[in-house]
Design a binder for these strands. Structure first.
Lengths: 282, 282
DNA sequence: AGAGGGCATTCGGGAAAACCGTATGCTGAC
DNA sequence: GTCAGCATACGGTTTTCCCGAATGCCCTCT
C-alpha cells in the first residue's frame, strides 16, 4: 500500500464505471483492456476495497465503488481546476442543448453566461435528449439544457440515467392552439420522444384523438391550416399568435403549465462548475 | 504533456516548497535528492511553468509556484478525504499546542472536539511557538493552539512564517499581581520569546525595570515572595488569587487585555479540516 | 444442445519511468 | 582560498505501464 491513489487510476476507474465494461472504457481511453483491468485492480488493492462486482456482462459498482465514483469525479475536477489555475489556461465548459432550444432560447442564456463569466470558453452541441443525458452521465458533457416539468429531473416523463443535479434557468409557456374557425381535433403531436410530445401526453392525457407528425413545425403548420389543435411552445407560436393565424384555445384551468428550461449536470461535480452553471440563470 | 500532474509529484513539490531545498525535502520524503529534483522538473515541464527559482542556497517559489502551492495542498487534502471516505479509515488530526497550554487549557478544548466529532483521532504535541508555527507551515501539524493578541495572527509580537488562518476558541485573562505588601518593582518576566513575556512587552511597554526569570512559574513564586510584580495568565495565578497569596494591582484602564486562545492553520487547507477546527471553539 | 460472441482476466515481453549512488558545477561563508 | 551546502547530470537497477495474444467464463442465438 505504499503507492496510493494515482489520478490516472481514478480516471480509468471513472471511465470503467461510466462505460460499465473494461473494454468500453479501454476504447474510450485509447488503451488496451488489459491495462485498464490492471489499473483498476491496482486501485482496488491500494484502497483495500472491492470497487466492482465482476459479472460476465461487465462491471457493476459495489457500494464502495459508488461512494468513490462521485468523489473521484470531484477530485478529478479539482485537479483540473488546479492545473488551470497555474497554467492560466481558460476554462472550457461543454454544454449540450436540445436541438429545438439551441436556435431560440439558448442564445440568451449564453449571453448571460459570457457577460458574467467572460473567462470561459463555452462549447455548445445540439443533441437529442437521450444523447444529452447519456453524455452528461458519461462526462462528455458538463451540463445539458433541456425541457422538463416539476421539481425533479424527469418530471416530464423520462428517466435520467444517473444522479443529476438541476437548475431552472427559464420557462417555456405552452399554448394549446388551433386556427381560428379550424378543427379542434385531432390533437396534432410531434413524434414520441420529443419533449413537447411528452408534455402533451403529461398535460392533456392520451385519451384525445391524435395524429402524429414529424416535427413541431409540421404540427404548427397543420394547425394553421385548420387540421386540428396542437400544444406548442411559446417560441414556436408567438408570431402566429400575434398575427392571428393561430388562436389559443381556452384551456381548462391549469391545463397549460409552464415547462422549465432546465440545466442538468452530474451530481457531485466540482463547486466551481456549479458556480458557472448558476451564472446561466436569469 | 501527455502525462499530467501526478499526486506524488505534487507531494514532492509541496515538500520542496516547505523545506526550501531539494535536499531537505528528499530527507523528509525518504528519497534521494536526485529523484525529487527530477520529479519537480517533470512537474514543471508537464505544466509548462517554472515553479521555482533555483538559487545556490535552495529553491525559491515563483509566483506560479506560490499559486500552485496552496492549491496543491488543497488537492492533496481532498485526495486524502476521498481515500478516507472509501476505506472508512478514521481521520487523524495532528494538533500542536503551546506547552504552557497543554496542561491547563487544552483538555477542555479537546473534550469539546471529541464530543462533537467522535469520528476523529487526535494527536497532540506540546511544542514551543516557533516549532508550532514551523510545523504548521510545513504541514507536519494540521493546526496549532497558541496565545495571541488582536485581530491578526502575530498581534502578540511574532511573525507567522506563512499565510495562516485562525479561530479564537477561548480567552486567557492576564493579571498584574504582586504579594500583598510586597515590592511592586521590578517587573518579573519570563524569558524572551515566551508568549506571556511578549504580552508583557506589548501591554506594559519596556520602560519598567524588569528582571528576567527562567519561567512563568518562577516569576510567580518570586512575586509571592514579594520580589516584585508580574503579569501572569489566569490559569497560573487563580489559586494564589483565591488564597490571597497574590493580589491584583489595579491596572490603569485597559491595561490588562485578554489574550486569545487561538487556533491557527495554513490558509487553504481543505474545508473538511476547517469544520473540524471550528468544532473546537466554545 | 452446441457454437459463437462479448466479457474480464492472465501471461510474457518491451518501453518508460522512478529511484538510487555518485559525480559535477555552482555560490556564499569562513 | 578552501570548504560546505546546494541543485543537477549521469549510468544503472527496479518498478510500473502498456500491449498483444491467449484463457476461461457466461449468455445468447441457432
Amino acid at each position: 500500500m505504499l503507492t496510493c491513489m494515482d489520478l490516472r487510476q481514478l480516471q480509468n476507474f471513472v471511465a470503467v464505471a461510466a462505460a460499465g465494461t473494461v473494454t468500453g472504457a479501454a476504447n474510450a481511453l485509447g488503451l488496451a483492456p488489459a491495462s485498464v483491468s490492471e489499473q483498476v485492480r491496482r486501485l482496488e488493492h491500494s484502497l483495500g476495497v472491492a470497487l466492482f462486482e465482476r459479472t460476465p456482462r461487465g462491471m457493476r459498482l459495489t457500494d464502495a465503488g459508488a461512494t468513490l465514483l462521485t468523489r473521484a469525479r470531484g477530485l478529478l475536477d479539482h485537479a483540473d481546476e488546479v492545473r488551470r489555475a497555474v497554467t492560466g489556461g481558460r476554462r472550457r465548459v461543454r454544454i449540450g442543448a436540445l436541438e429545438m432550444l439551441a436556435a431560440i432560447r439558448l442564445p440568451a442564456v449564453l449571453r448571460r453566461l459570457s457577460a458574467r463569466r467572460p473567462d470561459l470558453d463555452v462549447d455548445v452541441r445540439p443533441l437529442t435528449r437521450q444523447s444529452l443525458l447519456a453524455e452528461v452521465a458519461g462526462g462528455t458533457l458538463d451540463a445539458a439544457l433541456l425541457l422538463d416539468l416539476g421539481e425533479r429531473v424527469g418530471g416530464l416523463g423520462f428517466t435520467p440515467p444517473a444522479d443529476l443535479d438541476h437548475l431552472d434557468v427559464g420557462e417555456v409557456r405552452l399554448w394549446l392552439v388551433a386556427a381560428p374557425g379550424g378543427a379542434r381535433e385531432p390533437l396534432l403531436v410531434s413524434p414520441s420522444g420529443c419533449s413537447i410530445r411528452l408534455a402533451a401526453d403529461q398535460v392533456l392525457g392520451t385519451r384525445l384523438p391524435r395524429r402524429e407528425l414529424t416535427s413541431i413545425a409540421t404540427a404548427r403548420e397543420w394547425a394553421k391550416q385548420g387540421m386540428g389543435s396542437a400544444l406548442l411552445p411559446d417560441f414556436a407560436v408567438d408570431p402566429d399568435l400575434a398575427s392571428g393565424a393561430l388562436v389559443p384555445l381556452d384551456p381548462e384551468s391549469g391545463q397549460a403549465p409552464e415547462l422549465a428550461l432546465r440545466l442538468v449536470w452530474l451530481r457531485g461535480r466540482e463547486p466551481a462548475l456549479r458556480d458557472v452553471l448558476y451564472a446561466m440563470s436569469a
